[in-house]
């Protein structure tokens, strides 16, 4: 078997085991899928009003604004948070050591992890969209160009956040502390990136901080897909879709380097 065919076979086998593990762990399923769903339901129910536009423009129902942000946040959850937590636990409980003792190439292990992150990203997008459309009347875009942006954000966002999750395991010191180390930055980013509220409400200096990280750009680009241009002008000056995709692509490349430099295959011994 050639090298790349062997790699593809092993990465696929890893993905299969990752998926089995994922779907057999109810806690993880709950936090991954139910939490964003709960957020969509609760926020869309509480803030059921409209966002008023300039004269001549129809008002936008709040769920239409909230759902794309929640999709961005859901993608970060299943990529960054899930990978960082999952890998750290495997690292500190000695599961990674077991794999490291076999001829499984490291790259196949990571390919399996990133593939899992992509599969779960697609699933969470489908789940949130389905609820948004069915329960809260969210309307989907018609133009293919918008769907192309959607796909690009999904790809670049999931990719860069997966790699960031891998790199982030470096600062997790034990299996038990993993969620506590992973969740706070994710939570803070959700607030300052305007996921739960309108971005224009976030103070300028926090917006500046949020602009460094992928989540703000993911939410912004996804909103551009679902919302009229005047919201982009109100909230962001303009949608800046090109800039958003560039920033995400840059994060993708940077996170790949970061993951490569910072990851330790096995830890806890010299």
């Amino acid at each position: 078997m050639t090298g790349s065919r062997r790699f593809a076979r092993l990465a696929l086998l890893r993905l299969q085991v990752e998926l089995l593990t994922f779907f057999r762990t109810p806690d993880q399923l709950f936090f991954t899928f139910l939490l964003p769903v709960l957020f969509v339901v609760v926020f869309s129910t509480i803030f059921s009003g409209d966002i008023q536009g300039p004269p001549g423009e129809p008002a936008v129902p709040f769920p239409q604004y909230f759902v794309p942000g929640m999709i961005a946040s859901g993608i970060v959850s299943v990529t960054f948070a899930n990978l960082a937590t999952g890998i750290a636990i495997e690292q500190h409980e000695g599961l990674l050591r077991r794999l490291a003792a076999t001829p499984l190439p490291r790259s196949a292990y990571f390919a399996g992890k990133v593939a899992l992150a992509f599969v779960t990203s697609v699933l969470i997008v489908i789940v949130i969209l389905a609820i948004g459309v069915a329960a809260f009347g969210v309307s989907l875009p018609r133009e293919p160009a918008k769907w192309a942006v959607f796909a690009a954000v999904l790809f670049l966002g999931a990719g860069s956040c997966s790699l960031l999750g891998i790199a982030y395991t470096r600062i997790i010191r034990s299996a038990g502390s993993a969620p506590a180390v992973v969740q706070p930055p994710y939570l803070v980013l959700q607030f300052i990136s305007g996921v739960f509220l309108q971005y224009s409400v976030v103070p300028g200096w926090l917006q500046a901080v949020a602009s460094v990280f992928p989540l703000k750009w993911m939410a912004q680009a996804l909103r551009s897909v679902f919302l009229p241009d005047w919201i982009g002008r109100d909230d962001y000056g303009s949608w800046q879709t090109g800039t958003a995709l560039l920033v995400l692509a840059a994060w993708f490349a940077g996170a790949a380097v970061l993951a490569r430099l910072s990851f330790r295959w096995s830890r806890g011994q010299g």
């Binding site: 085991v17 089995l20 593990t21 057999r24 409980e93 000695g94 599961l95 050591r97 077991r98 001829p103």
Partner: peptide, 17 residues
């Protein structure tokens, strides 16, 4: 690695498999 087998004194388990 393909020529070597390792049984650790202790290591974690893939619980749900």
């Amino acid at each position: 690695r393909a020529r070597i087998g390792v049984v650790f004194q202790s290591a974690g388990f893939f619980d749900v498999l």
